[in-house]
Design a binder for these strands. Sequence first.
DNA 1: ACCTGAACACCGTTCAAGT
DNA 2: ACCTGAACACCGTTCAAGT
Lengths: 187, 187
Amino acid sequence: VSSQTRDALIDAAEALLDGGGQDAVTLREVGKRVGVSHNAPYKHFSSKEALLAAVAARELDHYRDAILRARREAGSPLEALRTSLHEHVNRSVAHLERFHLIYGRWTTTDAELIRAAHGAYDAMLDLVRAAQASGSLPPTDPERLAALLRATAHGAADLAAAGHLEPEGKGRSDAAGLIDDLLAQLG
Amino acid sequence: VSSQTRDALIDAAEALLDGGGQDAVTLREVGKRVGVSHNAPYKHFSSKEALLAAVAARELDHYRDAILRARREAGSPLEALRTSLHEHVNRSVAHLERFHLIYGRWTTTDAELIRAAHGAYDAMLDLVRAAQASGSLPPTDPERLAALLRATAHGAADLAAAGHLEPEGKGRSDAAGLIDDLLAQLG
DNA sequence: ACCTGAACACCGTTCAAGT
DNA sequence: ACCTGAACACCGTTCAAGT
């Protein structure tokens, strides 16, 4: 289900989200930017949350696509994994409000959002399995290993964005550096 | 600076936050629960965000205290570290809205909040140094190592709470388990 | 020093009505 | 099928005024 107006509403919501967080996404401003009334969005989305879910799903699809692209372009599964994780933390910091949106509290279980989340997860899991098969990662349970990598990337991005990673400037530990530290320990 | 009313306002805000997130913390309901008018909070806090900062600072102090207690009670620095990280992820999941509050976007730089954040960070860093001194952790840069542990704990808690950790129920990876996986790799 | 009540400029959502 | 305008019940914040 897609339409010109619907896509424009998602674009506007995303831009407002990036600019000032969820509270800055008002249906009145979304409507104004698209050139419709402030309650026209209700003809395409059941609520403001449903509109935000569409933004989140689109961002999760981007994460999945980045993993698939890295697998095609990188020289080895390990390098594809490293590239994917680096891109993930960098994009999370660059688009922090989308990142917080995705992992915040949802009161509705949007099917599209769940599909997108599973898509990104499955792509990462497949990549971890490939890296294990090539001997670049220990042959432990792939789901646990993928979860460890995702948790570290997720936390590194969130802490870096909140400024909790380099309180004294000494021993500089940026988010991408922590990924490399973990991969070095696993290798 | 403390007063009966001020503490009661923080208590009420925390309870509302736990119940329904930041949006559920309305100054009107906070005032009603404390028995004052809906704008009495402005006599103690400059804005709603300042009130929420007080809630966040108190929670960070709890994290710091939990680390200090674990150091006193555990048999070794490594066990104190493991206990602290387990408690951290469990409490983050149990009090998810406080967790999201702490690491969300702040538009004001509250001095009390920064002090509390540094207190929790320093306690964790000292504990990592002690574990390194006892030979339980590799002698790498302690700040980077502490950051890696914090990032993993943080991400594990957030992903577990969002339900992104066990999508198929197979290879169950709870947040505390990921902490153990990482410590095992580092040991 | 601390609090109140009215007011202002918002907000998400609903609904009757239009094309 | 898609959109509008008025309305409802909120919200954070401000301000004059009270003790």
